[in-house]
Amino acid sequence: MMHKRFSTRDVPHQHGFDHGFDHGFDHGLGYWREVVAETYFKLQLRCGEGDRLDGQLDVWDLNGVQLSRLQSGALAYRRLRQHCGAQDRQLLVTLPLHGEVGFSQLGRSTRCAPGQFLLESSEEPYDFGYRQPNAMWVLKLPVATLKARIGEPGRFCARQYDNRQGMGRLFHDYLQWVTRHCDTDHGSTARALMATQLIDLLALSLRQHPDALQSAHSAVRDAHLARIEAHVRQHLSDPALSPERIAQASGISLRYLHQLFKDTGQSVAQWVRELRLQSAHEALSRANGRTTVAQIAYGAGFGDQAQFSHAFRKKFGHAPSEMLRPLRAPVHPPAR
């Protein structure tokens, strides 16, 4: 898969940026700021007084999910309010390897050590840093991919999650397996499959954390939502899936079903539609040259292909057929 490497050792000593959040002199920090903005999103940086920053960042693309390994000397990163909202909603999942990192967002502060991971949202200001040289694996993924599995992910940010037991261990172990295959070109279908499985395992490990699950809603409400989601995902390909059927299968009234979704910012029908579009996008990422748009549409529960294509383009900015086109391009033998 595509591999990019950035290193402060490849740039001159002076790069024209300061060493503090707002003023000072440069020691590789300006270059690193540009690299961080390109790889993740805009942040202010600060490092030790008078020390030249030594950093390296390796980046791999997993078809919509980005995997990176960041290593550098002590650094503080700050995302300001003016940095937020200028791009698609993104999440970072950080797994420190050598030392503890500190993180504050949404009024919560936490310390995350090796053996743990945390979530950072691009939508809200935050502070992130480490006082000693460190290295970490970082996953960057669109909010929509995780929201389709766990609901609004903001309530999971700025909390530490254990990756040494339970589903957290499974997520960590699978991530480690993926990192060992970073530089092997398995093809776009395999990359998309790895990305989907990583997100699924991440969602399961987040759900397992009791504080996060009960941070904004009651345990009873979350139990209902978990049962609703399980049923919907199992029957997503059924075009007759409706709020009435969902409520009946979940053992609750239709009125209570709508009440559960009242504070999510979307209706039950909108949520199901988002799940279907996300499922279709993932299926297209794994498709082969014989797959048709109609198969994808019907497999995701859309009864009308034209309606599906319109909704898909509106959400993702391109038609579903555009994701299939490269798979059908003729392969010409090399000229002799």
Rank of each mutant, 00 (worst) to 15 (best):
M2F: 08
S7P: 01
Q14G: 07
H15K: 06
F17V: 13
F21E: 01
W32N: 07
R33D: 03
E34I: 06
L45W: 08
R46P: 02
C47W: 10
C47Q: 07
G48C: 09
D54R: 12
V59G: 03
V65D: 02
G73S: 11
A76I: 04
R78E: 14
R79L: 09
R81L: 13
Q82I: 10
Q82M: 13
H83L: 06
C84T: 15
D88L: 12
L91G: 03
L95C: 14
L95F: 15
P96Y: 06
G99D: 12
G102N: 12
S104T: 12
S109V: 10
T110E: 08
L118D: 00
S122K: 01
Y126Q: 05
R131S: 07
V138K: 00
L141K: 01
L141F: 02
P142K: 03
R149M: 06
E152A: 13
E152L: 11
G154C: 09
A158Q: 04
Q160I: 05
Y161N: 11
L175K: 04
W177F: 14
C182M: 09
C182D: 03
C182L: 10
T189Y: 07
R191F: 05
L198A: 06
L202N: 05
L204R: 10
H209R: 13
A212P: 06
L213Y: 08
S218P: 04
A219G: 07
D222C: 09
H224L: 05
H224W: 09
A226E: 06
V232C: 13
H235C: 04
S237F: 04
S237T: 07
P239W: 00
P239I: 01
A240K: 13
R245S: 09
R245V: 05
A249D: 13
A249K: 10
S253R: 02
Y256V: 06
L257N: 06
L260Q: 11
D263F: 10
Q266N: 04
W271C: 02
R273Q: 15
E274W: 00
L277I: 01
S279E: 09
A283K: 06
R286I: 06
R286P: 02
T291M: 09
I296A: 02
A297L: 09
Y298V: 05
G303V: 05
D304K: 05
F308E: 00
K314M: 10
K315A: 10
F316P: 01
F316E: 00
S321M: 10
E322M: 15
R325V: 09
L327W: 01
H332L: 12
P334F: 11
